[in-house]
């Protein structure tokens, strides 16, 4: 029983890490769209860096949540 529980724990932790891929896509999306917008209108780019970082932070937070789930499975369950 214990072995199965541990197996499930590790599998779950590994699966939770897949969630980080979503965060990666999200952050890349934010940065890419910012860059394409900035190249089209460079004069407006400087004013939007704050928004860029806020967007990145929100996208990244979800990846951190999946990382947290993985950590919890590994160390705290």
């Amino acid at each position: 029983m214990e072995g199965i529980a541990q197996l499930g724990q590790y599998l779950g932790a590994g699966l939770a890490c897949i969630g980080m891929a979503g965060a990666a896509v999200g952050v890349g999306n934010v940065a890419g769209n910012y860059l394409s917008g900035a190249l089209r209108n460079p004069s407006a780019a400087a004013g939007q860096t704050a928004t860029l970082f806020i967007g990145m932070a929100f996208a990244e937070a979800l990846g951190i949540f999946s990382f947290l789930v993985a950590l919890l499975l590994m160390f705290a369950v």
Binding site: A57, F58, E60, A61, I64, F65, F67, L68, L71
Partner: peptide, 13 residues
């Protein structure tokens, strides 16, 4: 929650 976990999670990770 997200405000605190983001910071702690980033640092921990």
């Amino acid at each position: 929650v997200s405000h605190s976990i983001r910071l702690a999670g980033n640092m921990t990770a």
